[in-house]
Simulated assay, not measured.
Amino acid sequence: MNNIPPFGLGTFRLQGQTVIDSVKTGLELGYRVIDTAQIYGNEAEVGQAIAESGVPRSELFITTKIWTENLGRDALVPSLQESLAKLRTDYVDLTLIHWPSPNAAVPLADSLAALQQVKAQGLTRQTGVSNFTVALMQQAIDIVGAKEIATNQIELHPYLQNRKLAEFAGSQGITVTSYMTLAYGKVLQDAVIQKIAGTHQATPAQVVLAWAMQLGYAVIPSSTKRANLESNLKAQQLRLSENEMAQIAALERSQRLTSPEGLAPAWD
């Protein structure tokens, strides 16, 4: 069974001392899931923060993602070994294909075979994908089987609920990990979210994170502020009513915020 923790700490866009402080503070507050990626350019800092935190490796769940340039059979394994050296660990808990290979320059079968190889070598416990469409997920399932795809990490928030993809993933037993769950803070200004937050004496961020987790998704919010890191953690205790969940469901507006030219697939 895929074992993706429902709540973690993201590190996208955080660099240098900023990411060290964010991760160290997060670990101090009780975060145990850390999400990074080769392209973030912060794996070494994340590794430093973990080492300095004193939290035992066995308590942590670390995710990294293979960049498109490293998706070939010959490149993936050494690139992950380099990531492990930066992270100061012998293995990561989850390794993802960060984006599908642009124009399928590297056949998906090759990347998935290399992922199987690093898993067999014990360099990663689980494997998965990110930014995959339904068609790409189906292709991956046809190649290695759904059990080898622990998660698909996708942009998902109240303004882009990605239901078709989420339903497909669910039908295959694949966990959806939502990134940008707060839509760069845009949804925090939403009147519906703010009203629900008022009802629960919660923050808008807690409401949105709770909404995603209640739908069965994993979330990895990031923050550089201790108060927000602490507050976000409490989303795990918040339960929304069916009516409140329906109100948030009605906020869908297909507002995609991340679709880099040359990288993005033909979205569902």
Rank of each mutant, 00 (worst) to 15 (best):
N2K: 11
I4C: 10
L14A: 15
Q17C: 12
T18R: 11
V23I: 02
V33L: 15
I34T: 03
I34L: 08
Q38C: 00
G41L: 05
Q48D: 06
E52N: 15
S53H: 05
V55C: 12
S58G: 03
F61G: 12
T63S: 13
T64W: 00
T64S: 08
L76N: 04
P78S: 07
P78I: 13
L84T: 02
Y91Q: 10
Y91E: 10
I97S: 01
P107N: 07
D110P: 06
A114E: 10
Q116H: 12
K119E: 10
L123P: 11
G128Y: 07
V129N: 06
T133R: 03
M137N: 14
Q139P: 14
A140Q: 04
I143F: 06
V144W: 03
G145Q: 04
G145F: 06
I149P: 04
A150E: 05
I154G: 01
I154E: 06
T175E: 03
Y179E: 08
M180N: 14
T181P: 11
G185H: 13
V187S: 09
A191I: 12
V192L: 09
Q194W: 08
Q194I: 08
A197S: 07
T199C: 07
Q206N: 15
V208Q: 13
L209N: 00
I220C: 08
I220G: 01
P221S: 07
N228C: 00
N228R: 14
L229I: 00
N232A: 09
N232C: 11
A235T: 09
Q237N: 02
Q237G: 00
R239D: 10
E244Q: 08
E244W: 06
E252A: 04
E252S: 02
S254R: 10
Q255P: 07
Q255I: 01
E261R: 08
L263D: 12
A264S: 13
P265F: 00
P265C: 01
A266T: 14
